[in-house]
Simulated assay, not measured.
Amino acid sequence: MTRTVLVAGETLIDFIPQQTGPLAAVETFSRRAGGAPANVAVGLAHLDTLPEFWTRVGDGAFGDYLTGVLADAGLADTYVEVDEEAKTGLAFVSLGEEAEREFSFHRHESADTRLQPGRIDDAALADVEWVHVGGVTLADEPARTATLDLVDRAREAGSTVSFDPNARPELWAGADASFAETLDEVLGRVDVLKATPDDLGAAGIDHDAPERTAEALLDRGPHTVFLTLGGEGSVAAASADAPWAGAPTTVAHDGYTVEPVDTTGAGDAFTAGIIAALVDGAGLDEALGFGNAVAAVTTTAQGAMTALPTREEVATFRAEQS
């Protein structure tokens, strides 16, 4: 395994319902470790691309549980912070009949909102090939400043920086900047964007034609854009500035046929898949196919982290689908 990747952001408790339907009707939940960046970090570990992970949890039972989960996944605790003055964030999930999900967050002044700038020093960043961050920590200070500081210094150090907006509109109520303003700002500061139609819609960006949309987003800063389309697969566009073989190019993947149980974390699994593939030197087309496969396997079991596959499981799945 290699530690050329650094992931930064929230680790939360996901409460997964034991039945489908609206949140108001759910009576029982199962506790699961979650948070988009945490899912990406654990997904990378499962795919033998062991990253460093910078996160912050509360000092208490939920924080203890999460640090244990991260340790069990093989992640070092170098940048796993325990906040003695804040609680761990919570997210309650509801599942629709087609395994689609919605979230209700409980993270006012939670530990993940209290990341501090400068925690990852320049010497550490000099050894990092890829840095990945998400949009949730941009909704609150000081985590917003800490995340943007990391992004800027990582680019200065020569790292590839990827970003998942992970639009959660309720988290932006009362924020100093809107989600749309923040997305526009961050696009000019990152190399790789992974987004969904919901992310783009929340920012007021037209997404009716995915391939054309991906290409248009290249003009806003990143050299590579991935758009995931749920059961319809995904598309990717890369400009001439992208380092991948064959760039500039636009490619599409139709996805894989599965019976979904829970789509929670599927997008994070996709992100882990494309990062692992690209760090390994794959071309854009192969990375897209691998990311789709990782995501598809993840939807066949409940939970986000608990459903993340190994490389061997992904290879078996792809062979069965061919």
Results as ranks from 00 to 15, higher is better:
D77H: 14
A180H: 06
S178F: 13
I274Q: 01
T113Q: 03
A301W: 05
L95Y: 05
G74C: 10
E312D: 15
R153M: 09
V136E: 03
L288K: 02
D219C: 05
Q18F: 10
T2R: 15
G188F: 09
V40N: 12
L90K: 05
A216L: 05
D280E: 14
L115M: 15
E156L: 13
L75Y: 01
L23M: 13
S322V: 07
A154F: 13
A124P: 01
G291S: 05
G233Y: 05
D268C: 06
T2L: 10
A73M: 11
D149N: 11
A73P: 06
V82N: 05
E52R: 12
G58F: 02
A245G: 10
T11Q: 01
A45G: 10
V261L: 12
A124L: 03
A41H: 11
P197V: 01
A238M: 09
E109P: 02
E10V: 02
L12M: 14
L44A: 10
T249K: 09
V258E: 14
P117C: 04
E85Q: 14
A180T: 04
L90A: 08
V131E: 03
P165G: 14
E232L: 08
P210S: 05
R107M: 07
A295K: 00
P222F: 07
G221W: 09
G68H: 11
W130E: 09
A33Y: 03
V235T: 12
L278G: 00
L148F: 11
A38G: 13
M305W: 07
T299C: 15
V261A: 10
T67W: 01
R114T: 03
L148Q: 13
R220F: 10
A195W: 03
D14N: 11
L229H: 00
G21E: 10
T147E: 01
E27F: 07
V57M: 03
A33T: 02
V93F: 03
K194S: 08
L23Q: 11
T49W: 06
L90F: 13
P197L: 07
E27Q: 15
G255R: 05
L229Y: 03
A282K: 12
A8Q: 13
Y65N: 00
E141N: 01
T224Q: 01
A209W: 12
A277N: 07
D112S: 12
E98W: 07
L308I: 09
A216C: 08
H207L: 02
A252H: 12
D59R: 06
R32F: 15
I16C: 12
A177M: 13
T213K: 04
G291Q: 02
A86Y: 04
